[in-house]
């Protein structure tokens, strides 16, 4: 009989973490951010039917990165959990915080007890009656839970996306602006020369009664798309410059004017490109 090779618990956990992290980094990025009327999810997703973003409950949304089969089973389990909770008690008794805790427990148990950890990262978000009540949680493969105050990026090459979003993110933006910020972030994560693929976009809209989750598709999505190609890059630069300039000023009031200027800059950029 051969003895199993000894591995220290630290080594085991490290190996598992590395395995999960690699799996998650292989996919494409998902961005979730808070905006004036709720929460916005933007994911690069070539499939129109295998969603990365989904509705969980009346005011709760879900986004995931990593291995589809694994986060899909977590998504279904989450819907079952909240529907049971809401049916046994009341619809108001369902909260994102509670769901995030359940997910954290589940992911933690899988990470420590099973041979293969889940290669997923989840976002659970809830839209409140006022912007201060909006919640955005990040759940990682090992069951860690983080309450994100502004935005989160999961999957793929997150570092460039995060640093880009740190530059361009403005609290309390309107939907179109928030979407432009998310797209700029996602573009920063692309390797040189690559084009941004098909986007899956959804919002949790504070002003929708009942079920707040809504997908943005088709013509509505096209209308939101800022621009493409060189023009967009110009706009990026412009927005960056403006952002630095506007940092000291009160962000909210400057917004419309700033967007307008950035727009002009983009048009000018188009002209130069040709």
């Amino acid at each position: 009989m051969t003895l199993p090779i000894y591995a220290s618990p630290e080594q085991l956990m490290r190996d598992r973490s590395e395995y999960a992290r690699k799996g998650i980094a292989r996919g494409r990025s998902v961005v979730a951010l808070k905006y004036a009327d709720g929460l916005l999810f933007v994911a690069e997703n070539p499939s129109a039917t295998l969603h990365k973003i989904s509705e969980i409950y009346d005011r709760i949304g879900f986004a995931a990165a990593g291995r589809y089969s694994e986060y899909e089973s977590l998504r279904r389990a989450g819907i079952r959990h909240v529907d049971l909770q809401g049916y046994a008690y009341d619809r108001r008794d369902v909260s994102a915080r509670q769901l995030a805790n359940v997910y954290a427990q589940t992911l933690g148990a899988i990470f420590t007890e099973q041979v293969k950890p889940f290669e997923v990262e989840l976002a659970v978000a809830e839209v409140g009656a006022r912007p201060e009540e909006d919640q955005l949680f990040r759940l990682t493969y090992d069951g860690s839970i983080v309450d994100e105050p502004r935005f989160l990026v999961m999957g793929g090459q997150t570092d460039p996306v995060v640093s880009k979003l740190k530059e361009v993110y403005v609290e309390g933006s309107a939907l179109a602006e928030a979407f432009a910020q998310a797209v700029q972030g996602l573009k920063a994560g692309l390797s040189n020369g690559a084009e941004l693929g098909k986007l899956e976009v959804a919002i949790l809209d504070r002003h929708r009664p009942g079920r707040a989750f809504r997908r943005i598709t088709g013509a509505e999505l096209d209308a939101l798309m800022p621009a493409n190609g060189d023009g967009a890059k110009e706009q990026d630069k412009q927005a960056q410059g403006e952002d630095k300039g506007a940092k000291q000023a009160t962000a909210d009031k400057k917004e419309p004017g700033k967007a307008g200027e950035a727009d002009k800059g983009r048009q000018a950029g188009d002209g130069q490109g040709e």
Partner: peptide, 30 residues
């Protein structure tokens, strides 16, 4: 009853899309 612990394996593995079927398996008294 729903609780704060990890989701039971049945939640993760069930294939039904029906809430009634799910209740029948998990909480028949409801």
């Amino acid at each position: 009853q729903p609780q704060a612990g990890p989701l039971s394996p049945a939640y993760l593995s069930m294939s039904t899309s029906s809430f009634t079927e799910f209740l029948r398996a998990q909480s028949p008294d409801l």
